[in-house]
């Protein structure tokens, strides 16, 4: 009986980092988007916040695409 601790460890590490990074990124995006809305309502442009939000969402979309790629291959 041989337990593949290395594989288990890497699953543990990768899942942890991927989840926290993705959720963090997405949260940043959502938060920036609400900030942008608030800024627009206050009369500002809020374009920096919006760009930041879109950048975060783009990265998340890339991660999802990579996930689909992993499923397909």
């Amino acid at each position: 009986m041989k337990i593949d601790w290395a594989a288990l460890g890497s699953v543990f590490g990768v899942s942890l980092v991927a989840t926290v990074a993705l959720v963090g990124l997405f949260t940043l995006g959502v938060v920036s988007l609400t900030k942008q809305e608030a800024a627009t309502q206050a009369g500002g442009s809020g374009s920096l916040a919006r760009t930041g939000a879109y950048a975060c969402f783009a990265l998340c979309a890339a991660a999802v695409s990579y996930g689909i790629y992993l499923i397909v291959t």
């Binding site: 699953v11 991927a18 989840t19």
Partner: peptide, 14 residues
């Protein structure tokens, strides 16, 4: 988290 774990585990051999 569930999606990450499932994808990571099926691709890292555990």
């Amino acid at each position: 988290s569930a999606a990450s774990v499932i994808l990571a585990s099926s691709n890292l051999g555990f």
